[in-house]
């Protein structure tokens, strides 16, 4: 098992190179002049050139990238072009907001999706199933930014219960962003739970359990659900990773001080170093989460564990 984990972590190194190079190069090729946007319009061409030389922008791409990566592997993720803040410190100060929001959204997803999906599967083709499936369909179809704005309109502007944006109001500020994120996630997870449970619900081993005298609740929750968990965890795990970076839309709708918004600002400002560093950090975080999901598989399904350990 440890061997497997080490192998997976080793794979991270080429992955970091790949991701960072792509982001670095793309940022460099993007139209616009980062130096000009940094120093402003009212500078002469000579002053600009001097600034470029000073910041090292005149070296070839590969040299600049190499210099940057050397720093990264020494733990120096560079400084932001604007204000000169340390990128890593900045990222780490924003990360808790993103993680807390993602965690809350995932918690909501699990609380809603798993019971609903299980009930829909057990009562297959009943009215509960129809309602659950239709609601899930709807939840998936609603765009996140629209739902966020509508919630804001109702709860912030009309009812004035919740703050419109930011994270300054404690738990109250988490409610709307978390719900917005959870709606789409829970919808997809409900559908996954339902179909995964349906695959198991006529399985022979459930009949064996019933023939033993196991009650229906245990048959469903202990025998069937555990076998149905792998696809469910896959979906929920990937939703979690998506929220590290992909909650950008929701983060910007709610002006959330998370890493999604931070990355977005760096990209908009043509801040190559910061954007690449954020991409690397998000990559590592995503890979580690996915690894955790894969390790979780092994605890749920001994057959997968056997594959990992090669037994």
């Amino acid at each position: 098992m440890w061997k497997y984990i080490c192998k997976r972590i080793a794979v991270l190194i080429p992955l970091v190179f790949l991701v960072s190079f792509i982001v670095y190069a793309l940022m460099d090729f993007a139209p616009g002049d980062p130096v000009r946007s940094l120093v402003g319009e009212n500078m002469t061409e000579e002053q600009l050139e001097q600034k470029r030389e000073e910041l090292g922008f005149n070296d070839p791409l590969i040299v600049r990238y190499g210099r940057y990566m050397k720093g990264v592997f020494q733990g120096d993720f560079g400084k932001s072009m604007y204000g000169g803040k340390d990128v890593l410190t900045e990222y780490m100060s924003r990360l808790p907001y993103t993680l807390k929001l993602a965690g809350l959204a995932i918690l909501l997803t699990i609380i809603i999706a798993i019971p609903l999906g299980v009930i829909a599967a057990v009562k297959h083709n009943s009215w509960i199933d129809t309602i659950a499936s239709t609601t899930a369909m709807m939840g998936l179809s609603i765009p996140g930014f629209w739902l966020g704005l509508m919630l804001m309109l109702l709860f912030s502007l009309q009812l004035e219960w919740l703050p419109t944006s930011g994270a300054e109001d404690g738990i109250k500020s988490y409610i709307m962003p978390a719900i917005t994120l959870a709606v789409a996630n829970a919808s997809l997870s409900t559908r996954t739970t339902r179909s995964s449970m349906l695959d198991q619900i006529r399985a022979d081993y459930l009949r064996t359990a019933r023939a033993k005298g196991v009650n229906e609740k245990t048959v469903i929750l202990k025998h069937a659900l555990r076998n149905a968990l792998i696809p469910i965890i896959t979906i929920i795990g990937s939703q979690f990773t998506v929220m590290f970076s992909g909650a950008v839309v929701v983060e910007s709708v709610f002006s959330w001080p998370g890493v999604g918004n931070l990355t977005l600002t760096a990209i908009r400002g043509h801040d190559i170093t910061a954007a690449t560093s954020y991409a690397i950090l998000t990559t590592v975080l995503t890979a580690v989460t996915l690894l955790a999901v894969d390790v979780l598989y092994a605890y749920i399904d001994p057959r997968i564990k056997a594959q990992y350990t090669g037994k």
């Binding site: 064996t208 023939a211 033993k212 005298g213 076998n227 057959r303």
Partner: peptide, 25 residues
């Protein structure tokens, strides 16, 4: 509840396909 007490204790069943009759996890 009565059925559950009967199954496995008074009457039980050996199933046809051992490959699928056991819970894999």
């Amino acid at each position: 509840a009565e059925l559950q007490t009967m199954r496995g204790k008074e009457i039980s069943m050996i199933f046809q396909d051992p490959m699928t009759s056991l819970n894999p996890v």
